[in-house]
Design a protein around this nucleic acid. Structure first.
Lengths: 182, 182
DNA sequence: CAAGATACGTCAATATGACTGACATAAATT
DNA sequence: AATTTATGTCAGTCATATTGACGTATCTTG
């Protein structure tokens, strides 16, 4: 069997003991949270990856169909802002989702150049299935945390997000107060 | 100017009001935390992306040099477990980091087949720079949260991570409570 | 109305980072 | 001596991203 102990693997000398303590010579780096975020997100998106394979889709498809389902009537331009990709990249993925009947387009009422995007029941079902897997993980994670603690987690995540030049979905999430429109 | 209001964009009828309330017909899905995780991670890794461009590196290089810096003496096989990629994928990225002097290899003492990986001062400097950017964001995010709340955030992130079949880095992070064997 | 800007789609070429499969070598284990 | 392990590499492919250019329909503005 392989050696079970760490061969020479050790915490760096400037981060002995408490992983978020001030460094001796350098500054206080948050190694622990940096790495926890990496692993948490790795496993979080991993849940969906396995399911998506069965549909012949990748992460790109998930992101698109998720936000279209959640924010019906999203424009192509909005989606580009949210996903931070180019329209050429979005094009292929979106075309697949349209061709296979997960999304439909509707010409905008006010502006007929716009193609407003809506998920079909088929698309919504896929999104709900994937969100279910991720919800299971989140529920397990918050099982030992009281409601105030969960709100603290939300507060932390919200504060990790850039607020300058927010896209439409972020505006909806952070709301001027309004989720929809009062 | 483009329309500033959401053209038809609204929360789904089954998620009115509180975003994590039980759905009318379906189950209780954690849309809010799912999306907060997406945006938080998007902006979190975005910090490093901009710096990495100046070095001609991508996210793959960052992940490799980060874990090698943090866990000196990491074996190639360990790195494959942590990053969950194939050795062929790791190969090219690792070769670049070796060629450009960010990482050095040392033959294992006990097992001469092993190539133990160590960051050079040049490599450590890059990692510290990138971790500094991410630490700035984390510090801003926890600014309004008391120490107990920050510990709750850590607890949440730890609980989001798969604990079955953990890699060596995860064993180090979770320490004594390791699943493998005592 | 004419001119320009905007929203979207698409063609072409390219880069990164991932994959499978096969094979080679050196060193450890049995 | 035979096998397994740790690592490296070649070859081909795929998914997702990029930049740049161009076309078309539609809205806005002078």
């Amino acid at each position: 069997m392989t050696d079970i102990n760490f061969s020479g693997m050790a915490a760096k000398p400037d981060s002995q003991g408490d992983d978020h303590a001030p460094a001796a010579g350098g500054r206080d780096l948050r190694w622990d949270i940096i790495e926890l975020l990496f692993f948490a997100y790795r496993d979080f998106v991993g849940d969906a990856d396995q399911e998506l394979e069965a549909f012949g889709f990748g992460r790109a498809h998930h992101r698109v169909i998720h936000f279209v389902t959640r924010y019906p009537g999203l424009k192509v331009a909005d989606l580009l802002d949210v996903l931070r990709i180019t329209k050429q990249s979005l094009g292929r993925v979106l075309k697949q989702l349209l061709d296979e009947g997960y999304i439909v387009q509707k010409t905008g009422n006010n502006d007929r150049r716009q193609r407003l995007l809506y998920a079909t029941p088929k698309g919504e079902a896929l999104v709900a299935k994937l969100a279910g897997l991720q919800t299971d993980r989140i529920n397990r994670a918050v099982a030992g945390i009281d409601p105030a603690g969960v709100e603290t987690v939300r507060q932390f995540l919200r504060a990790m997000i850039d607020r300058d030049d927010p896209d439409k979905v972020l505006e909806a999430i952070f709301g001027g107060g309004r989720k929809t429109r009062e």
